[in-house]
Computed example of a mutant assay.
Amino acid sequence: MRALLSIDYTNDFVASDGKLTTGQAGQGIEQALVETTKEFLANGDFVVFAIDCHDSTDHYHPENKLFPPHNLVGTSGRQLYGQLEKIYEEHHTLPTVYWLDKRHYSAFSGTDLDIRLRERGIVDLYLTGVCTDICVLHTAVDAYNLGYKLHIVKDAVASFDPDGHAWALRHFEQSLGASIE
């Protein structure tokens, strides 16, 4: 069994005016991400939208020292970017689609993601989204440590740091045994 993790592909991370945007790099993966998502939905695979969720009143979160406020509850910055928003709206009621609010880089940290995957017998995880060298990376490391087989959809991940993006792709393959597809 397999699942697709669509990580942080939101307005704040992708739109030109996003609060912490990957800009053209993130916008450039939209078609690959959309096609991959449609394929998984058509096959009846589990699709998880793992989306950063921050509260403007939480002054203790460690990211507040590193990044400007982003993906704040109740803002348009948390909406999925571009065509992915429409796909989610059309399919969000399916039992194979799951919206996961996350507070940390990894989609596994403090969430029920591992339980949801295991109860469905999922072994293979396909990762897409942004940022390759931050949230995608931390999710991949946790997935590896939990024993999942990793697949990174190369054309559907991006970062605002080209060097970090390239490093993360090598790390996925060389240190986590991920398949880069």
Rank of each mutant, 00 (worst) to 15 (best):
I122P: 08
E39Q: 13
P162I: 10
L150K: 11
R170H: 13
Y9P: 00
I29Q: 00
T96F: 01
T75E: 05
R120Q: 02
A3N: 04
V136C: 10
H171T: 15
G147R: 08
E173K: 15
I180M: 11
L137R: 15
I152D: 03
G110S: 10
C135I: 05
T37Y: 04
A32L: 09
G77D: 00
H138P: 00
V153L: 11
S106N: 05
A107R: 02
G18L: 08
Q83F: 03
P95D: 14
Y144A: 13
L169D: 07
Q174F: 13
L146Y: 13
D17A: 03
T36V: 01
E35S: 07
F46I: 04
D133L: 06
E181Y: 12
N64W: 06
T57I: 05
D17G: 03
K102M: 06
I87V: 13
H151E: 00
N11I: 01
H91C: 10
A143G: 13
V48A: 02
T10K: 02
D163Q: 15
M1A: 07
V123K: 14
A107Y: 04
Q27R: 14
L169R: 05
I180D: 11
T128D: 00
A168G: 10
V73I: 14
H171R: 15
K86D: 10
W99M: 13
P62R: 06
E119V: 14
E181R: 14
